[in-house]
Each structure stands twice: as structure tokens, then as C-alpha cells.
């Protein structure tokens, strides 16, 4: 299984091609996840990152394998970008035994500790303090690991966000708070309910942090600002907050058509689609059209294989139901 993770030690151009491949893989994965939802293979809910791929790809490329990602329920892209193969993620969405968590977590809780993917959290803001804890542990143990916590623009008005920022700042923790500002919460525009124009960045100053705003549809720009923030964190210079401007092409979740958004707004952002933009940049830099076609076909094949492998997974049974409440593997609360 090919990893979608873009390793920073590649040559300049290979690194960019890897980031492109990552974005294409995230896009194709999400489109297939949507189809599988419509076909009722994916039950419950799912939140896609179509349109926001440059962020997951750019940030993951700036991270080391030992660093930690804390994501929201909109976490498929971040999970893939950290190098988790497609099959267990599709299988998890379908509730199969070969799922990343054997079907016990589902779309909103993707976790793969071995890939540094420390969880996807579905209570708004909750994982920001948790990421602080991981960063504290790195600081205490003297490793140079860094934690990155992603969150949406709607998440800046909940208490945990503010507690985490102050806490990280006063303890100088190696944590990056990364806002994916896609302008919308579920069905409400964030600017309608938020006191400042840049929901995350404008709050940075309140916690003594520099305000960093980046084009979230440009993977290179995301990679650059994240690399700098991570370098500061590793050097013991404390947390950073980055706000990336982006847009989700689809609805909030499930089959939401997103009709509450003005047509012109969507049209404008479709023109800023990160993937064709990055593709043209690679062509300008001398990557051949043929190479890109091969790469894209390769991703298509990966999605196809992974879909089939995931569908072939078993249906979880009672053996899993009472497993792993406790560290001893069981669920018993009495003797």
C-alpha cells in the first residue's frame, strides 16, 4: 500500500510531487467516501475535506513521523495525510472488522497511534487541551515532539479553545493550533456569530501569540508557515496559532447539499480549488503531464483496491462489544 505521506527529506521537486499526490489521494478518497455514503455502505455520518486538502497535505509534510496530530470529526484527510492506508479507513467508515478501530470508532474518531494520528474528536474544541497535554509530555520527557491540533472556524467560540491557548502559552508548550477556516460552521456563517474578522488569528494576540494567516488552498504556503511554527515549537519557543483560509466544496456532513451558501461564493472558491492550482504549478516547474497522469491513475487504482478490500471485511460481533473499555482488554466493572 502506497503511503500518501509526503516525507520532507525528498528532493525539492519530489517533495512537491508527493504533496500533490497526497492532495489527489485525499480528494479521491473523499469522493469515494461520499459515493459509499449514498450507496449506504457508509452509515451514520461523515464530514469530508473536499476543497481543504492543501491543509492536511501541507501540514503533514511539515511533520515528523513522531509528531502528533489531533483532528476533529472532519478527520479523514488528516488521517490519510499522516500515512494511514486507505483500506482501514474505508473499512472503518463501513463498520467492518478490518476498520482502523474495528468499527468501534467510526468516521468521526479515526485514530492511528502508530502513525502519530492521536485521534479525531467530535466535541468542538475538546482536543485542543488534549493536544496541550501531549505537548507537555514531550516537553517533560525532553523529546522534541510537536503536537498539531486542527479545528474549524466555528470552534473558536467555545471555552476549551481559550483555556488551551492560555495554558499552552504560559507553559510554552510545543503545540500548533491550526484553524481550517472554511467560513461556515454547520449551517451558520461563522462571521454572523463571531466578534472578530479572523476568528482564530485575531484571538492570538490575547494569548501573546503572533497572528499567522495563510492561504489554505496553497499547500506550499501551508507547508512553509507550518514548518516555521514547528521549528519554533521544537526549539522550545512555545505554541503558534495558524489560521488558513479555505472552503469546503460540499455540505457540512452526510448528504448535505450546502444550499444555504450563495452560488457566487461557491463558484468563487471552486476557482481556487487547491488541486488544479497545484497541478498547474507542477507543470510550470517542469513535471510532465504524463507523469501526473500516471500518478493520478495510480491513486484511482489505490482507491479502487482499498474500496474492495474494505468491503470484503467482516461484520464485527460480540467479541468486540465488551472489549477494551479497560487497559486489561475487558469491560468488567465488578468481581
Amino acid at each position: 500500500m502506497t503511503s500518501t505521506h509526503a516525507a520532507p527529506e525528498l528532493s525539492y521537486l519530489d517533495h512537491k510531487v508527493a504533496m500533490y499526490r497526497c492532495q489527489v489521494a485525499l480528494r479521491q478518497f473523499e469522493q469515494r467516501a461520499y459515493d459509499l455514503f449514498l450507496e449506504n455502505f457508509v452509515k451514520g455520518t461523515s464530514h469530508l475535506s473536499i476543497g481543504q486538502e492543501a491543509i492536511a497535505a501541507g501540514v503533514a509534510a511539515a511533520m515528523r513521523p513522531t509528531d502528533w496530530t489531533f483532528a476533529t470529526y472532519r478527520g479523514h484527510a488528516h488521517t490519510l495525510a499522516r500515512g494511514v492506508p486507505m483500506t482501514p479507513i474505508f473499512a472503518e467508515l463501513m463498520g467492518r472488522t478490518n476498520g482502523l478501530m474495528a468499527g468501534k470508532g467510526g468516521s468521526m474518531h479515526l485514530t492511528s497511534v502508530e502513525h502519530g494520528m492521536m485521534g479525531s474528536y467530535a466535541i468542538i474544541g475538546a482536543h485542543l487541551p488534549i493536544a496541550c497535554g501531549a505537548a507537555w509530555s514531550a516537553q517533560y520527557r525532553g523529546t522534541d515532539q510537536v503536537a498539531v491540533a486542527f479545528f474549524g472556524d466555528g470552534s473558536v467560540n467555545i471555552g476549551a479553545f481559550h483555556e488551551a491557548l492560555n495554558f499552552a502559552a504560559v507553559w510554552k508548550l510545543p503545540v500548533i493550533f491550526f484553524c481550517e477556516n472554511n467560513l461556515w460552521m454547520e449551517y451558520t456563517r461563522t462571521s454572523d456569530v463571531t466578534a472578530v474578522a479572523n476568528p482564530a488569528a485575531d484571538r492570538a494576540a490575547a494569548y501573546g501569540l503572533e497572528s499567522i494567516i495563510v492561504d489554505g488552498n496553497d499547500a506550499d504556503a501551508v507547508y512553509e508557515v507550518t514548518s516555521l511554527a514547528i521549528a519554533r515549537a521544537r526549539a522550545g519557543e512555545g505554541p503558534s496559532m495558524i489560521e488558513a483560509k479555505t472552503y469546503r466544496h460540499g455540505g457540512h456532513s452526510r448528504a448535505d447539499p450546502g444550499k444555504y451558501r450563495p452560488d457566487e461564493e461557491l463558484a468563487e472558491w471552486l476557482l481556487k480549488d487547491p488541486i488544479p492550482l497545484y497541478r498547474s504549478r507542477l507543470l510550470e516547474m517542469g513535471v510532465s503531464e504524463d507523469d501526473l497522469l500516471v500518478l493520478e491513475a495510480d491513486v484511482d487504482a489505490e482507491v479502487e483496491t482499498a474500496t474492495n478490500e474494505a468491503k470484503a471485511g467482516g461484520v464485527p460481533g460480540e467479541d468486540l462489544l465488551l472489549k477494551d473499555v479497560w487497559a486489561d482488554g475487558g469491560a468488567s466493572w465488578r468481581n
Binding site: 502528533w68 492521536m118 475538546a126 482536543h127 485542543l128 487541551p129 488534549i130 493536544a131 496541550c132 497535554g133 501531549a134 505537548a135 507537555w136 509530555s137 514531550a138 517533560y140 520527557r141 515532539q145 503536537a147 471555552g159 476549551a160 483555556e163 488551551a164 492560555n166 495554558f167 504560559v170 507553559w171
Partner: peptide
């Protein structure tokens, strides 16, 4: 460590630290 008056941050920090090797 003395903390700010931030109960979510206190327990979130304990959780994140516990899942990465400490016993807070």
C-alpha cells in the same frame, strides 16, 4: 505544577500526557 483556573485545560492536559507516556 500550578495551573490557571482552567478545568478543561487541566484535565485535557492530563489526558494528553497520559496517552503519551506520563502518569498525571
Amino acid at each position: 505544577r500550578d495551573t490557571p483556573i482552567s478545568e478543561q485545560a487541566i484535565l485535557g492536559a492530563a489526558m494528553g500526557a497520559a496517552m503519551t507516556g506520563l502518569r498525571p
